[in-house]
Amino acid sequence: MVEKIRTGIAGLDCMLKGGLIPGRPYIVSGPLGSGKTTLCMQFLLEGLKEGESVLFVALEEPPNEIRFNMESYGWKVGDVEILDANSDIRRFEPKPILEISSEIDVVPMKNVPSKIRKTPDGESRETTVHSLQQALKNLFKRKDYGRIVIDSITALRRFCMKDFEESLSTQSFIRFLTEAGKTALMTVETIDNTGSDLETFLARGEIRLHKFRHENGIKRFICIEKYKGSSHLEYIVPMEIKKGGIFVYEEET
């Protein structure tokens, strides 16, 4: 049997029959506010606990806000390394555009300033799928990251593939992560509780989060849509988000 790594959420590990098979990319999908980023952060914190280096690639929110948001769960996220891959304010005049691979460095969360990084007057930074791939490649040479989170593939596709073909570039990006042999969680925004076609198809597994509006509030569920190379729980399990993060109510039988 393959050795598995824990996700940081006990109930989810039960659903995955022990955890995730390392060295592969997985999808975490769900609608807005379903807890994708939170789940990913728990995954990284678990890695820290194991003494690994872990990396969070931010494409949707500025690092200062991620830090603030995650600390509100009562977590110590200081040692999670973060790559700020958010694009700057776009220039409308032709100005030099800096590709992030040459520009950005990774910082541990504890060194993230409390204020947002400002777009400089003279030049604008822009993340493309190509430059992000390059940046990651360089990073992987320098350090052996045990766990990686890409938050999110949706933003990568929307904002970083202007002159690229979306399906092909996504495929190539996931292929790149696979070849690098990294255990990666990639978040994907879904609408209407339906799945994402392409990413799911490419990834080795998909954890899907559900969020339903109900008269008495929001009901949350989690399920494993796909898991190559392992058996897994086949049904939907209720979960909660509260202080301390995500709790999945599934026990080993």
Binding site: S87, I89, I116, R158, F159
Partner: peptide, 16 residues
């Protein structure tokens, strides 16, 4: 549009 709106939201964020 998507990139313009992304940029606009970034702009608003930077206004603090």
């Amino acid at each position: 549009r998507r990139i313009l709106i992304q940029s606009f939201l970034r702009f608003l964020s930077e206004l603090e």
